[in-house]
């Protein structure tokens, strides 16, 4: 699935909602689709920039090798987890039965 940017401001709203794990009402989807397409069409201004040979920026600083030594520190307790968990049993988070989700 290779799509040219010039055709890409058409949005598959159901696919995006699924990737986002968002349950949306049909009216919400309709509105979002229009807004996203309008926003993306405006953002196509980026096509005008020659970016050949340019490295992408992933961080606002150019630093490497920030790490910790392998030494153990305190963590949280299951009791602390229980205070924030929506459902908790036997020191564990309870979720309804999990089925495979492709």
């Amino acid at each position: 699935m290779s799509i040219d940017i010039s055709n890409s401001a058409s949005v598959d709203i159901d696919h995006l909602a699924k990737l986002s794990r968002l349950q949306l009402a049909e009216s919400e989807k309709f509105k979002l689709q229009g807004q996203l397409e309008r926003i993306l069409n405006h953002f196509r201004a980026l096509e005008d920039v020659d970016v050949s040979g340019i490295e992408p920026t992933a961080h606002a600083c150019d630093v490497v090798n920030i790490w910790d030594e392998d030494e153990v520190a305190e963590g949280l307790t299951p009791d602390q987890l229980e205070t924030i968990a929506p459902a908790f049993r036997d020191r564990q988070i309870v979720v309804p039965k999990v089925v495979d989700d492709a």
Binding site: I3, I5, S8, L22, E28, Q35, E47, V49, P56
Partner: peptide, 27 residues
């Protein structure tokens, strides 16, 4: 929700290079 959807659009397969990587380069 709008921003989550927009973010997933620019990262999703087929759009990543054209949108996300391009934006990183313009950055």
């Amino acid at each position: 929700k709008r921003r989550i959807m927009l973010g997933n659009f620019v990262l999703s397969s087929g759009y990543y290079d054209a949108w996300y990587v391009r934006a990183q380069k313009v950055r």
